[in-house]
Design a protein around this nucleic acid. Sequence first.
DNA 1: AATTCTATCGAACACTTTGTTCTGTAATTA
DNA 2: TAATTACAGAACAAAGTGTTCGATAGAATT
Lengths: 188, 188
Amino acid sequence: MDRRQKKTRRAVFQAFTELLSEKPYGSITVQDIIDRADIGRSTFYAHFETKDELIHQLCEELFGHIIDTAMDHTHTHGRYSGENAPVSVFCHLLQHLQENDNNILGLLSCESNEIFLRYFKNSLNQLVETQLPAADSDHTPDIPRDFIINHISGSFVEMVLWWMEGKMRQTPDDLDRFFRTVVGPFLI
Amino acid sequence: MDRRQKKTRRAVFQAFTELLSEKPYGSITVQDIIDRADIGRSTFYAHFETKDELIHQLCEELFGHIIDTAMDHTHTHGRYSGENAPVSVFCHLLQHLQENDNNILGLLSCESNEIFLRYFKNSLNQLVETQLPAADSDHTPDIPRDFIINHISGSFVEMVLWWMEGKMRQTPDDLDRFFRTVVGPFLI
DNA sequence: AATTCTATCGAACACTTTGTTCTGTAATTA
DNA sequence: TAATTACAGAACAAAGTGTTCGATAGAATT
């Protein structure tokens, strides 16, 4: 990929995430973005068909990366396995979010976070899928597997949102304990 | 309130909900709304400062009503009380959603549902608050009460979304059973 | 080094949307 | 009946959209 393309792409992503922390998605215009990124109008449209595609590509980059990281952790440390797990993949994920490499939490907490949340949750579904025992356990008689997956990843997302709204006063370890308490029975 | 005002207001809400089922919130223009509602441009702005205020007022009406209904049910039938509850307030709420008085489910499932979801969840928080035992139970040692409330209402919302995405193949009774299984321990 | 691609710039463009302001008209209220 | 209030419809400036074009600079190829 051409250096110039990368540079433009980085500038747009940077400008866009900055703007997202300042005002809601709906009121961010292409004009705002190209002003902030300091690129030409035609250049923007050469890269992105529309504003929606921009946020789409941004999500792919951000969440693709964090889920890859979590998957790696699973392969290294094995599946979530109750109390004696060294560091659960969920705790690891929380730590990663807290370190805030790409300001992901900032994006989740911005006004128009629904797009990010959807990506986040879809990514988590993949992760949870790998964490769940193959067959339905005794804990979930007659309950569809995908309901459980949805419940677990949904609970994780809700927890993260709750965490952020409360100024992130808890440690990832605290949250991991909370999370084990409410959904643990379905993971083990 | 003037008849004419009510009529205009109804027409706008109707047009707006119709449009929401056809395309995402972001691409609905004031022009679309006034064309569909067949009102003058100045009339719209006499009622609503902006499009955001319109959706705000619509949410107030819709979710205010369903939560009032659920609260009534609680006062009549008592709190959620495990297996021997006649019809849990959550089951009752699901039935109400299914009957679809004001096409609430249609709004939740539309592309730009995040605004409705937020209202829905906030309303549920109030409801869950009344359902939860006053003190933390043995099931939730050292876990903040508002975490539990958030977890429960979040799980309910996620369940409803899962229900809709799967074409609502389950009955409210099924869902109520699923719901009891995953969050029941914290409600009883 | 010279040449060919290719990304960007910047300006211009027709078009849509926005929110405001105006006048005349019809419905409601006193 | 008279005064008030809500609406329709038109016009308006301002801002945003998405496209096109020729010029310029950087990258790649020979």
